Amino acid sequence: MKSGTAIQAVLSFLLELGLFGAAGLWALAAVGSPWAAVLAVVVVAAAWGLLLSPKAPARPPWPWHAVAGHVLFLAAALVLLAVGHPALGWTVLVLALVSAALVVRFRTDLAAESARARAEWVRARAERHGRTGGGGRVADGVPGRPGDASVPPASGDGGGRSARGGGRRSASRR
C-alpha cells in the first residue's frame, strides 16, 4: 500500500467513526434516549459493514462505494453541525473533503486495490463453499473460471486461440 492510499485509509476509518458518532448524537438529540443512540450506532455500523466496508459482502463496485461513503461522511458533518456540535461537524467536513481529494488523487491505485480485494474475497468465499474448479480456479461464473476470456488458457489448452483471447492464429505463425 502506498503512503497516499494508506493516509486515505486512515482518514476513512476516522470518518467512519465520525459517522457512527453522528448517528448516535442525532438519535440522542431527536429521541432523547441513550438506547436510541446505541440503536442508531448499531444500525449504521451494521449497514456500513454490509455495504461499504473494505471487505463488505455487498460492496458496490469502484467508484460507487467511494462516492457513497463520502456522501455519508458529508451527511455526518451536516448532522453534527445541526445537533449543536460545530467543532466536530467542521472537523468531519474538513476530513471528508481531504479524503475525497486523496481519492481523486490516488484513484488508479485505489481502484486497483479495490479490484484486488474484491477478487480475493470472491475467491475465499468460493473456497469456503467448496466451489473450485480444476487447477484451483474458482468456478460458478467468477474470475478465473476455465474458459473465461479474461484468463489465458493453460498451456496446451489453447484450442488454436492465442493467450490474449484472439481468434485463430494466422497460417504464417503455425
Rank of each mutant, 00 (worst) to 15 (best):
G130H: 01
R125Y: 03
V38S: 09
W64K: 02
L81C: 00
D109Q: 13
W90A: 13
A9P: 03
A100D: 03
W64Q: 09
P54R: 08
S33Y: 05
I7P: 09
G32A: 02
S3F: 11
H70I: 08
P34D: 04
R137D: 02
S3Y: 12
G165D: 00
T91A: 13
L88H: 09
A37Y: 02
L110R: 06
V142W: 10
P57M: 12
G167I: 01
A154Y: 08
T91W: 13
G144D: 04
V79W: 06
R173N: 07
A126H: 11
L19T: 06
P146W: 09
A124S: 13
A66R: 09
M1Y: 05
G24N: 04
L78Q: 14
V67F: 02
W35V: 15
P152I: 14
L110E: 05
R107N: 04
G32W: 00
L88N: 03
T108R: 14
L39S: 13
P86C: 08
A163T: 14
V43A: 14
R174H: 12
G141Y: 03
G32H: 00
D148V: 07
A163M: 15
A27D: 05
V79H: 08
A36G: 14
A124V: 06
S170Q: 07
A45I: 03
V92L: 05
W121L: 12
L97T: 09
A29G: 09
I7D: 12
R123C: 00
R105N: 08
A23L: 07
L14S: 09
A27E: 08
F13S: 08
A117V: 08
A6H: 13
W35A: 14
G156N: 02
R59T: 03
E113R: 13
A47L: 02
R169V: 13
L28V: 04
A139W: 10
A40F: 11
T91D: 09
L28W: 15
L39Q: 12
A117T: 15
G21P: 01
A171T: 14
G4H: 00
R116E: 02
Q8S: 12
A47N: 07
A119T: 04
A96T: 00
L50V: 15
L15S: 11
L78V: 14
P152K: 15
G158I: 04
L93P: 10
L95G: 15
L110Q: 05
G166F: 07
P86T: 12
P57L: 15
P146A: 05
V42F: 02
A126W: 03
V44F: 05
S12I: 10
A37V: 04
W48M: 03
G135H: 14
A124Q: 01
A30W: 10
A77N: 01
R105V: 15
R107T: 00
R137Y: 04
R116S: 00
R59I: 06
G147D: 02
S162I: 14
G134T: 15
D109F: 09
L51S: 12
E127D: 12
G147R: 06
A68C: 07
V79I: 05
K55F: 12
H65M: 07
A66Q: 13
A101W: 08
V83D: 11
L11H: 01
V10I: 06
A154R: 11
G136W: 03
H85M: 08
L11N: 15
E113D: 07
